[in-house]
Design a protein around this nucleic acid. Structure first.
Lengths: 202, 202
DNA sequence: CGGCGATCTGACAGTGACTGCCAACCAGGA
DNA sequence: TCCTGGTTGGCAGTCACTGTCAGATCGCCG
């Protein structure tokens, strides 16, 4: 509750925070390794904790959920999406703004391989997909006001329309990434996205 | 594995099956009552089993998951959606077919109140939403071939496009039902659906 | 440097969903 | 009538996750 805040530069961290950071990273790497090695469902929290050298309790203090171990970046997804879209010029259309957001999110991955690996894990593990969708729902809700202002607010139910538009954009991203994974990373996701959106919007 | 099948008429069922049916119904009603009374997360399997007069083990044999207790109809959703769409005339457009499917699904509810209650529970309980989305993903996958054949399969990536179109339709249904719930059931969901789709397809 | 307060950590027990296993059960056919 | 295959209930066990609490650690003040 104290919030040392201070814009999270790197310097002013206390030794404590550094240790914390280190442990966090250690856990994250161990988890990721085990997940890709033996699958998400087949990896238990106990195992991750053991191999990372912390207690289960501590692990749960760092990451509230098993999913969070995989989705460290997912929270950033939402943030980048929002930031990018709100940074678009006011006269940019709804779809252009959304497209920019999607592109920015895709650019977050360090490498093609990493992206492929992550998407593959996501699309192939039922329990993960569910959590991901849940999280995405929250993004959509956050995006709502941003998109609403960009649409002709003439008639009522602007909320419904904005929701539909956002969900459609993300659905296209889903379809695109799914196909991309199925093709083993061939081609550009953004091209697939455009293709999907074109198919939808006739 | 034996599949007594026989189109599930009511008469030729053996006494066993009747008992089975009865138990199933008892469990379902108890669960639904408790869920609406005290909330989904606050209701334990143990409680449902106790009040329904069966063992937990048996309950899990009838319904594999806690969610299934709520989503008894959800499997039917997928079925009706598929049946309706494949029953559409071959020359009906993709969007018309999908619209018919959505309408058929909405018509499944016994009453406006029941639909409202169910949607409300769904949209307000995080754990349920996740499960629902998961299940819906499976519907989408089942729908894929049905929709693919209705689209111009000219260029490649037909799969991606079909996926996007299906997901868009369902996203519109989501946005519509969410708005409908927010408005306490005022108006027609289908009208909202059309409105949403129009907003998306420009 | 010693000590104090604020955190952090690990161990333990407990909850709740869900599964495997096994003994007891029961309608229906030989 | 007994046999048989599907059914049921109880029990123990797994796994994610939470509350609690004593003890270790850090940061800091005197």
């Amino acid at each position: 509750m104290k919030q040392k805040a201070k814009s999270a530069a790197s310097a002013p961290t206390t030794l404590w925070d550094r240790t914390r950071q280190l442990a966090s990273q250690e856990i994250l790497e161990t988890a990721l390794r085990l997940f890709t090695e033996q699958g998400y469902d087949e990896t238990t929290i106990a195992q991750i904790a053991r191999e990372a050298g912390v207690s289960q309790r501590t692990l749960f203090r760092y990451f509230g959920t098993k999913e969070d171990l995989l989705g460290g970046g997912q929270d950033r997804f939402g943030q980048v999406l929002m930031d990018t879209i709100s940074a678009q010029p006011a006269d940019a259309g709804t779809w252009e703004a959304l497209r920019a957001g999607v592109a920015a999110v895709l650019a977050l991955h360090d490498s093609r391989e990493q992206a492929l690996e992550r998407f593959r894990l996501l699309h192939n593990t039922a329990s993960l997909r569910a959590g991901w969708l849940e999280k995405r729902l929250r993004f959509q809700e956050n995006l709502l006001p941003l998109i609403e202002t960009r649409m002709d607010t003439a008639t009522g139910n602007a909320g419904a329309k904005a929701r539909a538009v956002i969900a459609t954009a993300l659905a296209c991203l889903d379809a695109a990434s799914m196909t991309w994974v199925a093709n083993d990373g061939k081609g550009e996701i953004m091209d697939l996205y455009d293709e999907c959106l074109a198919a939808v919007r006739g």
